[in-house]
Design a binder for these strands. Structure first.
Length: 794
RNA sequence: GGGCUUGUAGCUCAGGUGGUUAGAGCGCUACACUGAUAAUGUAGAGGUCCCUGGUUCGAGUCCAGGCAGGCCCA
């Protein structure tokens, strides 16, 4: 018998196992790479999976996508090296270890040493590696598992340090601040994880204020004064805040570009002065009554002031207001401090978070006390109000204990909230918010002040209100290359296109600097050492450099000995690097900046660090950069896709990848998200065991484009199995049966001349060539779903 | 709240640049074959193209506004 005949029913899982065994015995994957030595390469980067959880069915889909294009290019004759890798650092692993040990972040360094804790993280992260390797093989994903990169290895970290140093030398690494939840009572920053603890958000009654910001009359504001009908009119912009203590730190006002605003002629309800105010059209009704519109303007000052008269004078959009200058509310004449950049402050700017839900539709911006404020101000070039402390270091108007700094005039030294537990029971006791409100009512800068109940986050340890406060962080100045990031992004072939131009493109348009700092333990440490007075610092770019600097420090007696002198293997993690002190050129000791870097830096560094570049292997790196193709979930848009792109543009002035598929999610068959809790998660091992890898992969790819969400229905896999593989199998069996009966044999050396072929034969050959052309066309354009299409039709 | 995305037959999905009776597979119904048979062939039924407005001689397709699901970010 020439052609093997199989019995029904065919065991698809068995076929998969047999093929896998044959691959492994004959090293087929290895040969598919080694046999193409010298051929053009097709560069692929494996997005490192984190091995701290079991793989799911969506990983099978993501990896099937990767596998398809790598194999296709291999079949076209290219060499496609595929280095596997593991992402091993980061918060999810730390949280898992904390949970398993029953500890919190505060216990690290006390109940458990940093050394033991990090050891535990290292063990935990590789716990599922065996499962991942198993799935990788069973699903038939070809990737090099024998020589993967691992982000916690010293060589990998060393590469990250070298890259950081390159950025540092280009002036792209700097220390600044970011607005984070901060507990003055506990003296510590809070993570979003801590803020999500139950009970942190409480209803509190605060003094709120609608402040009047006086518009300066210049060409930017001319239209307002024209509508008011007097060049010397008192025109104010109204902004509401639930935290009046932030008003002295105001440096800007934010409007929504498309929101309609109105100019209203009326009176200040406390001083009875005639004024003109600007607020959102949608909110005029909150402050002005129907009756007031009809009330006489004349005679209000002498009336009982119960009814506030008003008149509409004009309407503008937010875009009309942008750029208008206004007078500082708490000015230097009243004893409040000058600050750096104040000539650029006190301007109306646009912001996308402005709504007309509450307040006045205009948001008071204090860049030191709000994350949104900070971001909007940074985008618009508005400075923050910062004052120097006794050491000359710039800081916000509130110190770390929660008090106004001394420079704050009549309010200097006042507590922002009651952080020290002082007595508030006295009859004439006033909170800072109340004192500020009284001042504003007196000098005609408050349009309305009232008590208002709202929810506000509190520190889970001290029960005191949280402040949003500027905390030190290290940044990569991605905004310096923003235009180039956008420009190069346009050269990338995104599948689907909308992810590149929309989600990713918009993200780049609104880019802020990349906050690298993480106050954690398990990750790549920041390789920067500084003197205590912050005047001297060094960025270490390699282990060799570190050793040399340690030798200098030992010579200067800053360190007693070099812990790496006798050639033992270096561990660059905490706590070891924290125990290294270096010496500055002027002879001062330097201490490591205690932060870790964002794990996304680790993964963005894959193209370099997987080869231990730039320490070594420059030739290998250049041969394998940039990638021709990568694929990952759409949730990586601001993660891996961004960090790859950002680092490539800053370091190499290049894209990191030319083609990218951003695949969607795999949902349960009812369209719900898969979760262990709902019990609707599909086990990839069971699926492959039941249906075999071929039907599983075919279903995942052919059923819907990978960038759409896929509703995973096992019945669909059954259908694929019957419809496609069943047909294929039956067709083969039919052929095998009769070919064997007739003793048909193909004689490669004596084929029938084309001209002598029957019409039917020629039709079939034509059909085949059309199929090949169609499949190639679709695979060349990175559409794996359309590629199998033609083969499904007869 | 913002960005992106999806909504076409019972199910899963196709439907460049607007143009006759809106398609495929599965499922369903009927018939045929009974040496491919837990198959195969032939035929058929089945749709308010999410809703509302608009542009147009003409809209599943273009525009605006909603509704519902999803992802990411606040």
């Amino acid at each position: 018998m020439k052609y093997p005949e199989y019995k029904q029913p065919l065991d698809y899982a068995k076929v998969g196992e047999d093929v896998l065994a044959w691959w492994q015995q004959n090293h087929i994957f290895e040969k598919s790479v080694s046999s193409r030595e010298g051929q053009p390469t097709f560069v692929f980067y494996e997005g490192p999976p984190s091995a701290n959880g079991a793989p799911g069915i969506h990983h099978v889909m993501a990896r099937a996508v990767k596998d398809i294009f790598c194999r296709y290019q291999t079949m076209l004759g290219k060499q496609v090296p595929r280095k596997g890798g593991w992402d091993t650092h980061g918060l999810p692993i730390e949280l898992q270890v904390e949970k398993e040990l029953g500890i919190t972040k505060e216990d690290i360094g006390h109940k458990i040493s940093i050394e033991d804790y990090n050891q535990r993280c290292k063990e935990t992260v590789m716990r599922f590696k065996a499962q991942w390797d198993d799935l990788t093989q069973k699903m038939g994903y070809w990737v090099d598992l024998d020589d993967p990169y691992v982000t916690f290895e010293p060589e990998y970290i060393e590469s990250c340090w070298a890259l950081l140093k390159k950025l540092y030398d280009k002036g792209l690494l700097y220390k600044g601040y970011t607005i984070q939840p901060y507990s003055p009572a506990a003296g510590t920053g809070l993570s979003s994880h801590e803020l999500n603890q139950p009970g942190t958000y409480k209803d509190v009654k605060d003094t709120t204020a609608v402040a009047q910001f006086k518009v300066k009359h210049d060409e930017k504001s001319e239209k307002l004064f024209a509508a008011a009908g007097a060049p010397n009119a008192n025109v104010f912009i109204l902004a509401w805040t639930t935290t009046p203590w932030t008003l002295p730190a105001n440096t800007g006002l934010a409007v929504g570009k498309n929101i309609p605003y109105q100019l209203i002629r009326t009176f200040n309800p406390y001083t009875f002065e005639p004024i003109h105010v600007v607020l959102a059209k949608a909110l005029v009704g909150r402050y002005f009554s129907e009756k007031g519109a009809a009330a006489l303007l004349e005679g209000y000052a002498e009336s009982d002031h119960k009814l506030l008269p008003w008149r509409l004078e004009g309407e503008f959009t937010g875009a009309d207001l942008v750029g208008i200058n206004y007078e500082r509310l708490f000015d230097t004449e009243a004893g409040f401090p000058h600050f750096e950049g104040e000539e650029n402050a006190f301007r109306v700017i646009p912001a996308d978070f402005v709504t007309t839900e509450d307040g006045t539709g205009i948001v008071h911006i204090s860049p030191t006390f709000g994350a949104d404020d900070f971001r909007a101000a940074q985008l618009a070039g508005i400075p923050a109000l910062m004052v120097p402390d006794d050491q000359g270091k710039l800081g916000p108007i509130v110190d770390r204990t929660g008090r106004y700094v001394a420079q704050m005039g009549e309010f200097g030294g006042r507590w922002v909230k009651n952080y020290d537990g002082h007595d508030q029971s006295g009859a004439d006791y006033k909170t800072l918010d109340e004192s500020i409100a009284i001042r504003m009512r007196t000098n005609g800068t408050a349009f309305k002040t009232e008590k208002y109940e709202h929810t506000y986050p509190h520190c889970w340890r001290t029960d005191k209100p949280v402040l949003y406060y500027p905390l030190d962080s290290w940044f990569i100045k991605t905004t310096a290359v923003k235009d180039r990031l956008i420009e190069l992004n346009k050269t990338i072939n995104w599948k689907p296109e909308s992810t590149g131009s929309g989600r990713f493109g918009n993200w780049l348009e609104n880019l802020v600097d990349w906050n690298l700092s993480r106050s954690r333990y398990w990750g790549t440490p920041l390789p920067i050492w500084r003197t205590q007075d912050r005047t001297e610092e060094i960025c270490i770019g390699s282990i060799a450099e570190l050793k040399a600097e340690i030798d200098k420090a030992v010579a200067a007696e800053v360190m007693t000995h070099n812990p790496y002198a006798n050639g033992e293997k270096i561990d660059l993690h905490r706590p070891y690097v924290d125990d290294i002190f270096l010496v500055s050129p002027s002879g001062q000791p330097m201490y490591r900046e205690p932060d870790l870097i964002d794990v996304w830096f680790d993964s963005g560094a894959v193209p370099y660090a997987q080869w231990h570049y730039p320490i070594e292997n420059a030739d290998i790196f250049h041969k394998n950069f940039p990638a021709d193709f990568i694929a990952e979930g759409v949730d990586q848009t601001r993660g891996w896709f961004f960090t790859l792109h950002a680092l490539a543009v800053m370091l190499e002035d290049s894209v990191a990848f030319k083609n990218v598929i951003a695949n969607g999610l795999v949902l349960a068959k009812d369209g719900q998200k898969m979760s262990k809790r709902l019990g609707n998660a599909v086990d990839p091992f069971a699926t492959i065991k039941q249906f075999g890898p071929d039907a599983t992969r075919w279903y995942l790819i052919a059923n819907a484009p990978p960038w759409d969400n896929l509703k995973f229905d096992p019945a669909g896999v059954v259908e694929v199995q019957r419809r496609f593989f069943g047909t294929l199998f039956n067709t083969y069996s039919f052929y095998a049966l009769y070919a064997n009966l007739d003793g048909f044999e193909i004689d490669e050396n004596n084929r029938v001349a084309h001209a002598e072929l029957s019409e039917l034969d020629r039709w079939v050959l034509s059909k085949l060539q059309s199929l090949v052309a169609e499949v190639r066309l679709q695979l060349d354009s990175y559409d794996p779903t359309k590629a199998p299409g033609p083969s499904r039709i007869s």
